[in-house]
């Protein structure tokens, strides 16, 4: 499943997408410490698989939390969370 966590508001679309099919096979969970904003956590989904998700209380402020990793100029090609995820399960919409 592709889980898109985030929102769209007047200023744009801010979604972190997690491919839970890739993610459920991962044991390292590099995303937990790899994100400076600590937005990820591991949960059991509705089919009892261990997958990463974006913390519920952070889902509405991704634009703000991720701002530090996304400067107006000189943005990294791969973000810290993407580097930390060994399964290449994380993508950002903006």
């Amino acid at each position: 499943m592709i889980a898109n966590h985030g929102y769209k508001d007047g200023s744009g679309e801010y979604y972190i997408s997690i491919d839970t099919d890739k993610c459920s096979l991962c044991a390292e969970h590099g995303c937990l410490d790899g994100c400076p904003g600590q937005v990820f956590e591991i949960e059991f989904d509705d089919w009892d698989e261990e997958v990463a998700t974006v913390r519920a209380r952070e889902r509405n402020k991704l634009k703000q939390i991720c701002a530090a990793c996304k400067p107006v100029s000189g943005r990294l090609v791969r973000l810290p969370c993407q580097i930390a995820c060994g399964s290449e399960a994380i993508t950002h919409s903006w």
């Binding site: 703000q64 701002a67 530090a68 400067p71 107006v72």
Partner: peptide, 12 residues
């Protein structure tokens, strides 16, 4: 303030 600060952090 949180929302404004994030813009400040984006420009540095």
């Amino acid at each position: 303030s949180n929302r404004v600060s994030s813009m400040v952090r984006r420009v540095g």
